[in-house]
Amino acid sequence: MIKFDSVTKAYNKVLALNNVNLEIHKGEFLSVVGQSGAGKSTMMSLIIGEERPDEGQILIDDIDIAAIRAKDIPYLRRKIGVVFQDIKLLPMRTAFENIAFALEVSGEKPSMIQKEVPKILEMVGLEEKSKAFPHEMSGGERQRVAIARALAHKPVLLLADEPTGNLDSINAWEIIQLLLKINKAGTTVILATHAKDIVNSVKKRVITLENGEVVYDQEKGKYVL
């Protein structure tokens, strides 16, 4: 589904990714681990077309992302859900409105939004928090709203960049359980994380990045750094 073919990316002559070759299959749950600056976030940015590789190709379903015209990038992003450590919810909007926002920008009809958002909220277990504002929710709940928003367009791929970074272990584990549930429903999930316990207990494929290079790629792997 996603193929990194000799991908190199540098910022101000500092290599963030160095000749990365990688293949991620449809329906896979992949954990990307590595220390800060290892290249995890760069990998995410390249997949959503926010950055372009200096060398090599990134293919999503055989389409070269670098070849996609700038005006078509938004349509690619509707196929890829993204979740961040700092959550990025709109503070003046309720949980419902934050999720609806994703559908509004793509021109969905209000009737469709009214029908779909409760379903997504239910999926992430927040149907009771529909009218709650971000400041009225716990960190875990806010992150679940962010995941719900990422799922609004029914993406084929979900990127989670340190989604548990600001959460306690119970909330973090709940978020991982939710990601596993989403993966089980057929969505490919790429999880970039530092959390050793989580990676070890998930027992899914793990790739380890070090100085921009893939140093380990293990099926049912462990956090080895």
């Binding site: 959503i48 700038a70 005006k71 938004p74 349509y75 690619l76 992003r77 509707r78 993204v82 990025k88 709109l90 926002f101 994703a102 920008v105 793509s106 928003r149 990422a150 609004a152 367009h153």
Partner: peptide
């Protein structure tokens, strides 16, 4: 800026 960033992430077109 936050709203714009989120718009980009969820696939808003440039002109939107």
């Amino acid at each position: 800026r936050e709203e714009v960033e989120i718009m980009r992430l969820v696939g808003a077109t440039n002109w939107y």
